[in-house]
């Protein structure tokens, strides 16, 4: 299915119905979205073509459209431009590819599937919604550009890979899962994390509540990185065979989280 935006308004749109499951199961003419505080038909805002194909391609910029692919279970969404906030939030399966940038809350409380952003992502990638105890539970998010603050906040399982830089508080309150950053990591990385793994391929400023344990070549990481190579990430042989400094923390909390810093 192809969706072509017909709108130019800056008013945000909430379009949870843009999901391969919903588009396949329900009558398209009945699908509604919120445009500002008004209910509109999906077909009022998008030109809908090739309806028999389950996978969805959005041809255009939908940077002001929220909740695309939210709760989706299967299929594929390809967005040729930018994507709005809450992209793939709570998704359980399937794949979302964004050619441009994405807003905040990408893959928030995600339960499975793959999200890949070619550009930058906003804050709170894979995070828990405010008041919720657990963020991302499974799946994978890859951001080829930079990401904002609090990525992986309260995440429990799954993988977030940022090829560029990340801002502050990455992995805050983390309970499990893995964050990889190929660029630079901001301040207070891993703040109040209980468990989970943050892998930094560049030196970073660590909180004083993280303690050094050892320098070694983690076997599990060899396995992990070799698997991630299948996703065309810039993983060099030196990343796989190299040594990492292991710091555990955050000692203000359980202290069983870890930050692995690549030393080459």
């Amino acid at each position: 299915m192809i969706l072509r935006p017909k709108f130019k308004a800056k008013m945000p749109i909430e379009a949870e119905c843009i999901s391969p499951d919903i588009l396949a199961e329900k009558r398209i003419e009945n699908l509604e979205v919120y445009h500002g505080n008004k209910r509109r038909k999906l077909s009022d805002l998008f030109e809908i073509l090739d309806v028999k194909t389950k996978d969805v391609r959005i041809e255009g910029d939908v940077g002001n459209v929220k909740y695309i692919g939210a709760k989706m279970r299967s299929g594929k969404i390809i967005i040729d431009g930018n994507a709005g906030m809450h992209l793939g939030s709570e998704m359980e399966g399937g794949e979302i590819f964004v050619e441009g940038d994405a807003g905040d809350w990408v893959g928030a409380e995600m339960r499975g599937g793959l999200i890949r952003i070619k550009g930058n992502a906003g804050n709170l990638v894979g995070a828990a919604y405010r008041g919720s105890k657990v963020g991302m539970r499974q799946g994978m998010i890859i951001v080829e550009g930079d990401a904002g603050h609090e990525i992986g906040e309260r995440m429990k399982r799954g993988i977030i890979a940022i090829l560029g830089d990340v801002a502050s508080f990455a992995g805050a309150h983390m309970k499990g899962g893995t964050i990889l950053c190929f660029g630079n990591m901001g301040e207070r990385t891993g703040a109040e994390m209980d468990r989970g793994t943050i892998i930094a391929f560049n030196p970073l400023q660590l909180l004083p509540t993280f303690h050094y344990n050892a320098t070694y070549n983690p076997v599990f990481l060899r396995f992990c990185l070799r698997e991630l190579r299948k996703y065309d990430l810039p993983i060099a042989d030196e990343h796989i065979t190299g040594r990492y400094e292991r710091y555990n923390g955050d000692l203000t909390e359980l202290g069983k989280g870890e930050i692995l810093v690549w030393k080459g």
Partner: peptide
């Protein structure tokens, strides 16, 4: 109690700390 689980796809690995390093 210091063992760590890693779920990669459908495969769960256990990292068990040992004197030499980690047993996976």
């Amino acid at each position: 109690g210091y063992q760590i689980s890693k779920l990669l796809g459908k495969r769960r690995l256990w990292r068990i700390p040992v004197m030499e390093g980690e047993f996976v």
